[in-house]
C-alpha cells in the first residue's frame, strides 16, 4: 500500500489545463492547412495530382481543399514547387456541417454550439456510445485516450457508455463498411431521441482512404444524420475534445487557441 502511495506521488498530477489554458501540441503537428493561392503558378495542379483522396481540386473557380477528405499527409506539401501549401499547427477543425469543411475562398466556420434546448439536455451530461465501423483503430485509440487522466473527459460531463439505451448519441469512426452498416443503423435506432451523431476522422466523414470502395459507404452521413464532424487521420485528441466542447457550448470562438508550442 505504501508503495502504491509512493508511486502515486512519483507519477504526479497529469491532467492538462485545456481548455482554460492553450494546449501543448507538437511543433510539427499537421493541423489546419493553409494555401497561399497567390504563389500558385498558372494551371499548376501538382498538389491535386498527388493527393491520395482527391481532397484538393483545382478548376476555374480556384483551389479548394476538402478537410473532410484530407488525411493530413505530407504529400501535397512535399510536392508543391512554390511552398504555397503548408500545414499550420491550428488544431481547431471541427465543423457542424459537411460544406464547412471545404476550404476555398470563404472563411473556415468552426462548429457551432447546439441550440439552447439541446444544450439544456446534453450540456452537463452527455453519454455517448462509440461505434467503430471500419476504423483502423487510430481514431478509436485517440478517442479512447480522452478517458485517461491527461484529458479526463469526465470533468466535462462527457462519458462513453456500454449500451445505446444509456446513450444520448453516437460517436462513429470508420468509413462504415458494408458489413457494419446494419449494426450502425440498429445501434442508432436503439438510442432514445433526441440524439446526436458525431463523425470522427476522414473515414467517418467521407470514406477517407477507402472513398469509392464498394465494400464501404463513404462515411456516416449517408446512413444517419450527423451533428458534428471532426476531421483528421486521426484527429489529435485535443481536436476531438475541442469539437465536443464546442458542440456543448463550452468554448467560445476565441477560446483554446494553440498558443503554447513546444517540440512535441
Amino acid at each position: 500500500m505504501l508503495k502504491a502511495l509512493l508511486a502515486r506521488a512519483h507519477q504526479k498530477h497529469r491532467t492538462i489545463g485545456f481548455p482554460q489554458q492553450p494546449p501543448v501540441l507538437p511543433d510539427r503537428l499537421r493541423g489546419r492547412p493553409e494555401i497561399d493561392v497567390a504563389l500558385c503558378p498558372k494551371d499548376c495542379h501538382v498538389c491535386a495530382d498527388v493527393c491520395p483522396t482527391d481532397a484538393i481540386s483545382v478548376d476555374e473557380k480556384g483551389l479548394r481543399l476538402d478537410l473532410g477528405r484530407c488525411l493530413f499527409c505530407p504529400e501535397c506539401v512535399q510536392a508543391c514547387p512554390e511552398g504555397a501549401i503548408r500545414f499550420t499547427t491550428e488544431h481547431r477543425l471541427a465543423a457542424s456541417f459537411r460544406d464547412a469543411l471545404i476550404l476555398g475562398d470563404k472563411e473556415f466556420q468552426l462548429a457551432k454550439a447546439l441550440d439552447e434546448k439541446s444544450r439544456k439536455l446534453f450540456g452537463r451530461s452527455l453519454k455517448l456510445r462509440q461505434v467503430s465501423a471500419g476504423g483502423c483503430n487510430g481514431c478509436e485509440a485517440d478517442v479512447n485516450v480522452l478517458n485517461t487522466v491527461v484529458f479526463d473527459l469526465g470533468r466535462f460531463g462527457i462519458q462513453f457508455v456500454a449500451s445505446p439505451r444509456h446513450a444520448d448519441g453516437l460517436l462513429v469512426t470508420g468509413p462504415v463498411t458494408q458489413n457494419m452498416e446494419l449494426a450502425l443503423r440498429k445501434t442508432y435506432d436503439a438510442v432514445p431521441s433526441p440524439k446526436l451523431v458525431i463523425a470522427v476522422g476522414a473515414c467517418a466523414i467521407s470514406g477517407g482512404p477507402y472513398i469509392g470502395h464498394s465494400e464501404q459507404r463513404n462515411g456516416v452521413g449517408g446512413i444517419v444524420p450527423v451533428d458534428l464532424l471532426i476531421p483528421g487521420c486521426p484527429p489529435h485528441p485535443i481536436t476531438i475534445l475541442d469539437g465536443l466542447l464546442r458542440l456543448l457550448g463550452k468554448m467560445d470562438a476565441s477560446e483554446g487557441s494553440a498558443a503554447g508550442k513546444s517540440p512535441g
Binding site: P52, C73, C136, P209
Partner: peptide, 13 residues
Amino acid sequence: KRTIPYMETLAGD
C-alpha cells in the same frame, strides 16, 4: 498515390 495511406491504415495502431 493511395498505396501508402492503405498501408498506414491497414491497422492504424
